[in-house]
Nucleic acid binder design. Structure first.
Lengths: 211, 211
DNA sequence: CAAATAGTGTCTTTTAGACACTATTCG
DNA sequence: CGAATAGTGTCTAAAAGACACTATTTG
């Protein structure tokens, strides 16, 4: 047992509880970029949990998402630590905000108190515990990661046309993107599968994949 | 006192100790971008401290820097949380890494076990507790902030010539910068003071200030 | 055939980089 | 005067944006 110069151990000093809260972002088919909210006694909020003993923060995030949205296999990224004393009336609580993105098809919202809300909804401005601020930072982080790369969060699960990729980017960016500029930036980073899209109106498009 | 569904309070669950560690970056006159290290029983490391009860993380950073380098009035920025169990043999310790930048003239290294080390020194690669990784992230964050703006960390304390500003940017970037491109980017963001530099060889240069 | 979409080419504008030239000061 | 630095102009190359045109499919 480690003792400091006054003979005390770390356990003799007060310690905060540590929580994780996560903005899970997704793009449902033909819808806008949305964030996952869960319901508890106090209202709608980001999914979160308290850190267990000797658990990694990322593992606590995965545990909370498995329980609250039935989703697994994510790769959460830290955003920032919320440390205002008094922000949680249960006591001294630090919260480490995270962001992650997941294909909408992998979220199971059927039997849980969970739903998706578009990230520009007014409702999100008023969330307690700084959760609105977390969502803003999460959206900014996702937008930055999509700015230069085709699909860093792997939101597309199978080969896609340039149109499908552009529609995804437009949902993430929240604004339309020029077709030719988009193609010029993305095509060099993609590999053609050799197959073509079928079924819809218009000339069939090449299907691409990346990495 | 808040009690959960099993009647327990937050204090009944195990909690980690929380520390802060800070990479303090500076550019001494005519030297390279450097980081502040302090000495303790185990060797050289980044300055840090344990978070006190109900203290803000930024305040813990300021407290540790006041004690260990006699510097005040900084504005620390969070980088990331280190959470590997077992990273600290004193027990379960989370560490929140921070970065800050300060004019070299404001550091008091005379009577403390502290020194400045250039950020590209091999010695920094081997620091324990992920401190080498913190320094890399801190340098990247500082470089990103100087990429587009004249002096976001206020490392220049009085009016400066474009040459002085460029030398600062070259120290931060770790590489030479083209004179004309640099001027084209920075001059629109500066205000001329109307005064000129004196004393050195060459044509006197205009002195600028910003904000 | 009309509408919709894919694929490609080209022109213009903007920006970044390279370089050249003149101006002013110190030693 | 010569070296060093400031200030400005200009040419070129690269990138971004706008637009036009052809090709191929569905209904």
């Amino acid at each position: 047992m480690y003792r400091d110069s006054s003979g005390k151990t770390l356990e003799d000093y007060p310690r905060p509880s540590v929580a994780v809260d996560t903005a899970v972002l997704t793009v449902p088919p033909d819808e806008a970029l949305s964030v996952l909210l869960v319901h508890n006694k106090e209202g709608w909020r980001l999914p979160g949990t308290f850190l267990h003993e000797n658990e990694r923060l990322a593992d606590a995030v995965l545990r909370s998402l498995r329980q609250k949205a039935g989703v697994t296999g994510l790769a959460p990224r830290q955003l920032k630590v919320f440390d205002e004393p008094g922000r949680d009336d249960r006591g001294w609580v630090l919260s480490v905000a995270h962001v992650d993105a997941v294909p909408a098809s992998r979220l199971d919202l059927t039997e849980s108190d969970a739903r998706l809300v578009p990230v520009d909804a007014d409702e999100l401005r008023g969330l307690p515990y700084g959760h609105g601020e977390i969502i803003e930072a999460a959206v900014a982080a996702l937008r930055a990661s999509y700015e230069e790369h085709p699909d860093p969060a792997r939101l597309l699960q199978r080969p896609f046309t340039l149109r499908e990729l552009r529609k995804l980017h437009e949902a993430v960016a929240g604004q339309p993107l020029a077709r030719d500029t988009f193609r010029r930036l993305m095509e060099p980073q993609l590999s053609a599968t050799g197959q073509m899209s079928t079924g819809r109106v218009g000339k069939p498009a090449r299907l691409f994949w990346h990495e």
